[in-house]
Design a protein around this nucleic acid. Structure first.
Length: 700
DNA sequence: TTAGGGTTAG
């Protein structure tokens, strides 16, 4: 039996035009407030609405609160919430309904900050909200993470003893789910006397969004047993469930639900394939969507960009421009793509497009531009854009701080952090991550510890696992492995992957093989499907000279059928992206790169470079080790960059993994011998090689 | 009252 029902269709323009005709006729014969108001309620299109508004002004009814409320509602429903705000400001005798309509208009149009401001305005004027006001404002608290405000409104609602209200209760479930408080959300759900499909959807998507897949499925099955039909929202919340995909198969559910051809469902499925790195499957679905909207186009853009296919990313973006499918989200997606691949030239074009399209004052776009420049090691541009912004939020500051961190300017990062506090803006969880990372990259241990202490004690910020991972990294890198280890035992959270990874890296740097071995085993137990841990364990044994153990780790990796992420270096030349993989002899430019590289190695050897064969953690002869070293992806990229760019030009390379000791050493010599600046971004930070010295001062 | 694309870290 099909347990899904279709969602209602929206009013068409034709229907609206029909209402307009009736509006005129009715106004002519019954010029009562009631008839105009009831018509306003049905208008869902801009054109007839403007005409109705004009008619109300002409009829001298613009001070009528009842009509104005309806007009505001109609404007807000068409997405013209600014119009509703103007009308609201002009109503002489606003009532609770006026406030509530404004609030719900703002939340429905995603303007949550303003909604909360309006709510505060009501509090100041001592206007007591009713159930509808509360239900309207709850989504804003949820979306903005205003936990205290949300909880106090919940208390107010209980105190007022309004009684059961499915709208408020469902809003509370949604809000607490967004806060990540699933226990409270479930408590509200369990105490409801009446539940509708929205309430069930709220609790299912709450569990699903918070990573409790099994519980989400359990609730879905319970919902079916209770005889409740699901709808498109139910399917949406189940689509992203890993358990569900693995178990019953998502396609079966979609076909049974009858939403197979729904563009929204298809876009959600695209996202699923993109996240699983199946870009071609996502593209197949994308092509099948008849009316592709902005979201579908942008989702596909993310897919191409994420898969590293730069040529298709650019082609797709150009098509979007041709189809007039560009908005601030697509710009952010493209900026983020440039940021990940270090594509500075394309990034500059995006910056120009931001100015051309008029999104330069948008905070989200702004932080994405700053992040792009920061990830292309162009802090001058990042700072200039930041300086020119009319308004800045925490994300903009954080992008700047982490930019300084990545390039190794720890002091600049701390100064920016202090300026952020002086500006009156509260640092958030990400600020602490950014500033701690910056301290870690620059080796500023004491400063980092002081900031962590201050943020947690003075600012009352509850440290999460990421923060602890940063502190463990900070201590571990500086050699205080035992302190880092003690912290993991003392903290109030159970150590996760990030913590153990940081500890393990520290063990590798400082050759603490005993603890390293213990941590590796913890890591493998925690996430057995990650090839990286086996590699680290093997490398650790190799460093200690335990070749048998190293081999055993590699064998267990092989037998588990896990594949290591291959090391890739990429670089942008004249807007085109070139990618190199270690020992890739089938690269179209392999022969010329090899010849150039041989000459380059001879030159740097003459200047004193000695290959660091310890970087090859395999039990092979030194000759083979040298051969492997000379074919690392970074070296291939450096050679290609020197060949293809003008003398004196900066060579910029992005690597997906961390740079190895030997490539780091060789880059220093290359920068001196060839009189070139090399900017290499690895998985964590930048290395700027200039005149034989690296900006990281060999600390990474 | 609930849904598909996006920024800061990793």
């Amino acid at each position: 039996m099909n347990c899904f029902h279709k969602h209602p269709t929206r009013c068409s323009w034709r229907q609206n035009a029909h209402f307009l005709l009736h509006l005129k006729l009715r106004l002519k014969y019954y010029s009562t407030q009631m008839s105009q108001a009831s018509i306003l309620q049905k208008i869902r299109d801009v054109k007839p609405l403007h005409q109705a508004h004009a008619h109300i002004i002409v009829s001298n009814l613009s001070e009528n609160v009842f009509l104005c409320n309806r007009l505001m509602n109609a404007y807000a429903s068409c997405g013209l919430v600014s119009k509703a705000q103007i009308i609201f400001s002009q109503i002489p005798n606003k009532n609770l309904v006026s406030w509530t309509i404004l609030l719900s208009g703002l939340t429905k149009n995603g303007r949550f900050f303003e909604a909360v401001e309006v709510f505060y305005g009501m509090m100041v004027l001592q206007i007591r909200p009713n159930e509808i006001t509360i239900a309207s404002v709850l989504p804003a608290f949820g979306k903005l993470g205003r936990v205290l405000l949300g909880k106090s409104v919940h208390c107010y609602w209980i105190r007022c003893n309004f009684g059961d209200n499915v709208f408020v209760e469902t809003g509370l479930i949604d809000m607490y789910s967004k806060f990540g408080c699933m226990r409270i959300a479930r408590n509200v759900f369990d105490n409801m006397s009446v539940r509708n499909v929205v309430s069930w959807n709220a609790i299912i998507s709450g569990y699903s969004d918070n990573g409790y897949g099994e519980e989400a499925l359990r609730m879905f099955n319970l919902m079916k047993r209770k005889g409740m039909s699901g709808d498109i929202f139910t399917v949406m919340s189940l689509i992203s469930l890993e358990d569900f995909r693995v178990g019953s198969g998502i396609h079966g559910l979609i076909v049974r639900s009858g939403y197979e051809n729904d563009p929204l469902i298809r876009t959600a499925l695209m996202g699923l394939y993109i996240n699983g790195n199946f870009v071609n499957d996502a593209y197949r679905i994308f092509e099948e969507i008849n009316k592709k909207d902005l979201v579908a186009w942008t989702s596909m853009l993310r897919g191409f960009s994420r898969s590293g296919n730069w040529r298709r990313t650019i082609e797709h973006f150009n098509k979007m421009m041709g189809e007039n499918m560009i908005d601030y989200v697509s710009l952010i997606t493209m900026l983020s793509g440039c940021s990940c691949s270090g594509a500075l030239q394309q990034g500059r074009r995006m910056h120009a497009l931001v100015l051309k399209t008029g999104f330069q004052d948008d905070l989200f776009v702004g932080s994405a531009v700053i992040d792009m420049y920061a990830n292309c090691a162009s802090m001058i541009d990042a700072k200039r854009y930041f300086g020119g912004m009319v308004e800045r939020d925490a994300a903009c500051w954080n992008a700047l701080i982490s930019g300084y961190g990545m390039i190794g300017c720890g002091n600049e990062a701390i100064v920016t952090f202090l300026k952020m506090k002086d500006s009156g803006l509260s640092p958030d969880e990400s600020t602490l991550v950014s500033v701690l990372c910056a301290c870690s990259h620059a080796g500023l241990v004491e400063q980092g510890l002081r900031i962590f202490d201050q943020m947690t004690k003075v600012w009352n910020l509850i440290p999460n696992l990421k923060h602890y991972a940063c502190v463990v990294d900070l201590l571990g890198r500086s050699g205080r492995i035992y302190d880092a280890y003690l912290l993991t035992k003392r903290m109030h959270l159970k150590p996760g992957l990030e913590i153990y990874s940081s500890l393990l890296t520290a063990c590798k740097i400082h050759r603490n093989f005993e603890l390293g071995d213990e941590i590796s085993r913890e890591l493998i137990e925690l996430k057995p499907n990650d090839a990286g841990h086996y590699i680290l364990l093997s490398n650790m044994h190799a460093l200690a000279g335990n070749w048998d153990c190293a081999r055993m780790s590699r064998i267990s990796l092989k037998s588990s059928n896990l594949k290591k992420n291959p090391g890739l270096s990429s670089m942008e030349i004249n807007g085109e992206m070139f990618t190199f993989m270690a020992s890739q002899t089938d690269h179209p430019h392999y022969l010329e790169i090899r010849d150039f590289l041989e000459g380059l190695i001879l030159k740097i050897k003459a200047a004193g470079y000695e290959p660091d064969t310890d970087s090859v953690l395999l039990d092979v002869s030194d000759d083979v080790k040298r051969d492997i070293l000379f074919h690392h992806s970074e070296k291939l990229a450096i050679a290609f960059g020197l060949m293809r760019t003008k003398p004196g030009a900066v060579v910029r390379i992005t690597k997906n993994l961390r740079i190895c000791d030997d490539c780091h050493l060789a880059s220093k010599f290359v920068s001196k011998v060839c009189a070139r600046v090399l900017v290499i971004k690895d998985a964590k930070r930048f290395h700027v090689f200039r005149d034989g010295v690296c900006s990281c001062r060999d600390w990474w």
